[in-house]
Design a protein around this nucleic acid. Structure first.
Length: 648
DNA sequence: TCAATCCGTATC
DNA sequence: ATACGGATTGAC
C-alpha cells in the first residue's frame, strides 16, 4: 500500500499540483462591494445553540438594492449554503478576517421587522432556546406567489365614530355571559385605531375566528383587520402576515401565531380566555402567547386587555401586583348575569335512569330549547387526595403530587420521586387516601334512549361542532368542545365534575373551573344550570366567583413556590445526562427535584425539575442557555428544556 | 526536519 | 456539517 501511494504521488505530480492550487487560483474574484453599507449582519439558521448570533457578510454591489434589512438571504456558512435573515446593513465589520459575500437574496421582501428581532431576543431570555427557533414561529414560510401579488387596494372609509368605552391602559376583564366577548374586545381595538395605533387580538381556537371576524368587520369596518391562523394554509397565512408587515392593515386577529404579527405601531394587545391551554406553544421554546403579548406591550408601551368569563392564575397575579386593573364591563351586577347554579350529587331515583341524577333527568326532559351536557373526558391519571377532607395529598419534601404507581406500593412524589411510607393529612390528620374513580361516560345512545323526544348530537375529540341550531336537542360535549347556540342553551348540565378535579396537575382546579365557567356562559339568561358533584368543591362555581378561585389558586402557587411566583424548569433527557445536570451549580436558591421517569415515553428519557425564586429566573435561563451552547458545541444530543411548562 | 494525521474548535 | 490550525506522531 505504501509503495502504491508513493507511486501515486510520484506518478501524478502535475494533476496534484493544480488541484492543490485550485481553491485559491479559481476562487471567484471578490465581488465589488456595495457602494454604501457594504456589510450585512446576518442571522444564520444553523440550528446550533452556540452559533445563535449574527455573522457579517459582504454585500456585493449586485445585491445592493435587494439586500434590505429583514430580507431572507442565502449564505455560505461552514462550507454549506444556509438560510438566514439580514438583520441590518452597516459600514464596517468588527470581524477580523475577510468576509464571505452574500450568496443570494431570496427576496427583497422585508419579512423580519426590527421589533420582532428584539421580541425574539426577549423571548429567548425568558424561555431559553435559540432566536432561530423563535423566528420559525414568528415568520411564516415564504409563499412566493402571494408575495408577488399586488397589494390589495386599501379600503379607506372613515373609522366608525362609535362611542368607545374608556378602559384602563392595562386591564384584566371579567366578561359576564350577558356580554359578547368579541364585541367588547372589538371596541377596545376601535379605541386603539382612534389613537392611530394598531392592535393584535388572540383567541384560543380557530373555531372562534369566524364569529370574531364577523364582529370585527361590523365594529371596525371593512379592510381594517386580517385573520392570521396556522390552520388557514400557507398562502392565506403569508398573505395576512404580509398585510401586517407592509402596513396594509392595522389589526391582526388570530390564534397564537398572531401574537408574533409585525403590526405597525402596536397600541393594544388583547386576548380572549388566556387560560386556554391552546395558548401554550407546543414547539420550542414553548413560550406562552400571553407572555409574548405582554412582552410586546412593554416593548411598544401598548395597552393590554385580557378578557374572558374565567380568570387565569397568571391574570390574577397581574391584577394583584397592580400591573393590570380589574375590570367588569356592563355595569350590571356580575352575579346576576349568571344563572343560579344547582348542585346535585350523582344519585338517581324515581323514573330517572340509573346513573343519571333525577334533577338532570327532569330538567332535560322539561327543556323547551337546546340542552348542553358537558361530560368529562376520561383517561386522566388520578391524583390521590385525603379521604376525610379531600385536600390533595402532597409530598412532605417538595409539595408535589403523590401518586401510587401500582396497588400495594408506596406513595411516590411525581416531582422529586420521594417515597412516602406513612402518609397523614396535614389538614385533618386523616391517614386514608382516595383515588377518584374514572367512571363510564354516558353515551349518546343512553341519552337517546332516555330522551326519545330529543335529537342527540355530540361534539368532542376529532368532531367538534362550532354551532348548533336552536331547538329541542341535546348536545353532549367534552370540555372545551361546546358548540354555541343562537340565544343560548335552555339547560346546561356539568356532569361528573369530580372527574375533572381528579387529574394530577397543578392546574386542574383552575382548568376545570375555566371550562365550567365557559360552558355556563353559553346558557340563556333564564336557563336552568346544574352541576353534578360535591357542593363543597364547587363553591366558586355556585357563587360565580372566578376571581376568588384564581386568588386562592395563586396563593397555593405561592406556597409551593411555583409559577408565576417561582420559575420552574423541566429538563428531559437520558438518565446519565440528567445525573450530571443534577450535580451542576445552578443559581443560589435553585432546588433540584428528581430525576423522575416520564410517562408515555418508551425511550430511557427521564425528567429533572429545577425550581428557583423568580428573582433568579433570568440567571437560571442564562445558565440553561450556556448548557445548550455547551452541548451543541460538543456535538452532544440536546436536552429538552421547558421553562414554566403549562402542565406540571 | 518535514509531512501526514489527529483532534479540537470555529464557522463572518 | 466542513475547514482550518495546532499538536502529535512517525519516517528519514
Amino acid at each position: 500500500m505504501a509503495g502504491d501511494e508513493e507511486q501515486l504521488d510520484l506518478g501524478l505530480p502535475t494533476p496534484d499540483a493544480p488541484r492543490r492550487v485550485a481553491p485559491t487560483a479559481t476562487s471567484k474574484p471578490r465581488p465589488d462591494p456595495a457602494p454604501e453599507l457594504p456589510v450585512a449582519r446576518v442571522l444564520v439558521d444553523t440550528g446550533l445553540a452556540h452559533l445563535d448570533r449574527p455573522f457579517d457578510y459582504l454585500v456585493p454591489a449586485m445585491l445592493h438594492e435587494a439586500a434590505v434589512p429583514g430580507c431572507r438571504v442565502k449564505v455560505r456558512f461552514a462550507g454549506r449554503q444556509t438560510d438566514g435573515f439580514l438583520l441590518e446593513r452597516v459600514a464596517i465589520s468588527e470581524h477580523e478576517g475577510t468576509l464571505a459575500p452574500l450568496s443570494k437574496v431570496v427576496s427583497p421582501e422585508s419579512v423580519l421587522a426590527p421589533e420582532i428581532v428584539t421580541l425574539a431576543r426577549a423571548v429567548v431570555e425568558r424561555w431559553s432556546g435559540t432566536t432561530g427557533d423563535v423566528l420559525r414561529l414568528a415568520i411564516p414560510p415564504r409563499h412566493a406567489r402571494t408575495e408577488a401579488r399586488d397589494r390589495p387596494p386599501t379600503l379607506s372609509g372613515d373609522l366608525p365614530d362609535v362611542a368607545v368605552p374608556g378602559l384602563p391602559r392595562r386591564a384584566v376583564m371579567s366578561v359576564p355571559p350577558t356580554q359578547d366577548g368579541a364585541e367588547v374586545v372589538a371596541h377596545a381595538v376601535l379605541a386603539a385605531l382612534h389613537d392611530g395605533r394598531g392592535a393584535i387580538v388572540c383567541v384560543p381556537d380557530a373555531r372562534d375566528l369566524v364569529r370574531w371576524d364577523a364582529t370585527f368587520t361590523r365594529v371596525l369596518g371593512e379592510g381594517r383587520h386580517v385573520v392570521l391562523a396556522t390552520d388557514q394554509g400557507p398562502a392565506a397565512r403569508y398573505r395576512a402576515f404580509l398585510a401586517a408587515r407592509r402596513g396594509d392593515v392595522p389589526v391582526v386577529l388570530g390564534t397564537r401565531a398572531a401574537a408574533w404579527a409585525p403590526v405597525h405601531d402596536l397600541g393594544l394587545v388583547a386576548m380572549w380566555d388566556d387560560g386556554d391551554d391552546l395558548f401554550a406553544e407546543p414547539r420550542a421554546p414553548y413560550a406562552h402567547t400571553r407572555e409574548v403579548l405582554l412582552t410586546r406591550a412593554v416593548q411598544h408601551d401598548a395597552g393590554v386587555l385580557l378578557a374572558g368569563h374565567a380568570r387565569s392564575v397568571e391574570s390574577q397575579a397581574l391584577v394583584e401586583s397592580g400591573w393590570c386593573a380589574d375590570v367588569t364591563p356592563g355595569g350590571a351586577s356580575w352575579r346576576s348575569a349568571w344563572a343560579r347554579l344547582q348542585v346535585t350529587d350523582g344519585s338517581s331515583h324515581g323514573s330517572a335512569p340509573a346513573r343519571l341524577p333525577s334533577e338532570v333527568f327532569q330538567a332535560v326532559r322539561d327543556a323547551e330549547g337546546a340542552v348542553l351536557v358537558q361530560v368529562p373526558r376520561r383517561g386522566y391519571r388520578a391524583a390521590l387526595s385525603c379521604q376525610g377532607c379531600r385536600e390533595p395529598a402532597r409530598c412532605p419534601a417538595c409539595s408535589g403530587p403523590l401518586v401510587q404507581l401500582a396497588a400495594g406500593t408506596r406513595l411516590v412524589c411525581r416531582w422529586c420521586a420521594t417515597s412516602v411510607a406513612a402518609w397523614s393529612c396535614p389538614h385533618c390528620g386523616g391517614t386514608r387516601l382516595r383515588a377518584p374513580v374514572v367512571g363510564q361516560l354516558r353515551t349518546a345512545e343512553e341519552y337517546a334512549r332516555a330522551f326519545p323526544d330529543h335529537e342527540v348530537v355530540t361534539s368532542g375529540g376529532a368532531d367538534i361542532l362550532a354551532t348548533v341550531a336552536p331547538g329541542r336537542r341535546i348536545v353532549l360535549a367534552t370540555p372545551g368542545a361546546e358548540p354555541r347556540v343562537e340565544g343560548g342553551y335552555a339547560v346546561v348540565v356539568l356532569m361528573d365534575t369530580w372527574l375533572a378535579l381528579g387529574r394530577d396537575d397543578v392546574r386542574v382546579v383552575e382548568e376545570a373551573h375555566r371550562r365550567w365557567f365557559n360552558a355556563l356562559a353559553l346558557a340563556a339568561p333564564e336557563a336552568r344550570t346544574i352541576a353534578v358533584g360535591d357542593a363543597s368543591m364547587l363553591q366558586a362555581l355556585v357563587r360565580a366567583d372566578p376571581v376568588g378561585l384564581a386568588h386562592r389558586e395563586l396563593e397555593i402557587r405561592r406556597e409551593t413556590h411555583l409559577p408565576p411566583w417561582g420559575r420552574l424548569v423541566t429538563l428531559d433527557g437520558p438518565l446519565d445526562v440528567l445525573a450530571g445536570l443534577a450535580a451542576r451549580t445552578w443559581t443560589p436558591h435553585t432546588e433540584v427535584l428528581g430525576p423522575v421517569p416520564l410517562e408515555r415515553r418508551d425511550d430511557d428519557a427521564q425528567r429533572l425539575v429545577l425550581r428557583a425564586p423568580r428573582s433568579e429566573g433570568a440567571e437560571l435561563v442564562r445558565l440553561l442557555q450556556a448548557l445548550a451552547a455547551e452541548r451543541s458545541a460538543a456535538k452532544l444530543p440536546a436536552v429538552r428544556v421547558q421553562v414554566d411548562p403549562q402542565t406540571f
